[in-house]
């Protein structure tokens, strides 16, 4: 074929040799792209086994507004008198205002459960999802009288500050750098901050984070002390205590450092 014919002009008929070349080059390029897509897709991190049960659920127990909105329900496991379920609202909002008026009362809450390992949350349904209730037996009410608190002393932990709603199944994955800004928004929106550590065997432990006095982290302490470190690999120090089945870490905010 004479060389002069092998000149490509978009609006004219292509030379045959060029058509043959493109006939294998373009499909090869697309196949290579598909292979890359498959490879990258299969090499994503496992997003964890958090799960959001979308069927409506009700829990009856003693509601608490401090340090964060939660409900303590009679435990089914022998180790604890009560189990704790954190209460959150839809989207990136905490359950604060919806719980405050009934603090300390026995209530029935309605919503959907998110859970991962021992971490459980209930996203309150629309409307009056928190209502006073008297269906508990006197024995169960007694078991929920006050949390059993055990002081565990000073600890230094390495792990990640998470928003437990996403981490427990609202987003998969709901952790790490790409989720950092979402977790920051969740926590600043009232979802309680938690800390998660993973031991050598891959077991995760969860810690609810409070200020040194055991109260919710809010305002400047939250925004300047805690939020910049959300989702990063950090070391954190504080005083640990167990409240029923919940581990609560009173954080020394100045101790947090990125690793």
């Amino acid at each position: 074929m004479p060389e002069t014919n092998e000149f490509y002009v978009g609006y004219l008929k292509s030379p045959r040799t060029l058509t043959v070349f493109l006939g294998w080059a373009i499909p090869s390029l697309i196949v290579a792209a598909l292979a890359i897509g498959w490879l990258v897709s299969r090499s994503q991190n496992d997003p964890g086994d958090g799960v959001w049960h979308h069927e409506a659920n009700t829990l009856v127990g003693r509601v608490g507004a401090t340090p964060y909105p939660l409900i303590r329900v009679p435990s089914k496991s022998p180790g604890h008198a009560a189990e704790t379920v954190l209460l959150v609202s839809e989207g990136k909002h905490g359950g604060g205002e919806r719980v405050a008026a009934l603090d300390g009362r026995i209530v029935r809450v309605r919503g959907t459960i998110l859970e991962r390992d021992s971490c459980r949350l209930l996203e309150l349904a629309h409307g009056d999802a928190v209502k006073p209730d008297d269906s508990l037996t006197a024995a169960d009410t007694g078991r929920l009288a006050a949390p059993i608190i055990v002081a565990l002393g000073e600890v230094t932990l390495r792990g990640e500050i998470i928003d437990p709603k996403c981490y427990s199944g609202a987003m998969k994955p709901g952790e790490g750098k790409t989720h950092k800004e979402c977790a920051t928004l969740c926590i600043s929106g009232g979802i309680p901050p938690m800390f998660v550590t993973i031991d050598a065997a891959g077991r995760r432990s969860y810690y609810l984070l409070t200020d040194p006095d055991g109260r919710a982290l809010t305002g400047g302490a939250l925004h300047d002390g805690l939020l910049p470190f959300v989702a990063d690999v950090v070391e954190i120090r504080g005083t640990l205590e167990r409240r029923d089945d919940l581990q609560v870490l009173r954080v020394d905010l100045k101790s947090i450092r990125r690793l």
């Binding site: 697309i30 792209a33 598909l34 897509g37 498959w38 990258v40 897709s41 299969r42 994503q44 496992d46 997003p47 964890g48 086994d49 958090g50 799960v51 987003m171 998969k172 994955p173």
Partner: peptide
């Protein structure tokens, strides 16, 4: 379209059940 399909389908097929990616 093919790329998006392959990526999405592979992600759905390989990460399932409780470990499904959103």
């Amino acid at each position: 379209v093919l790329y998006l399909g392959v990526f999405f389908a592979a992600g759905k097929a390989l990460y399932t059940g409780r470990n499904a990616i959103s």
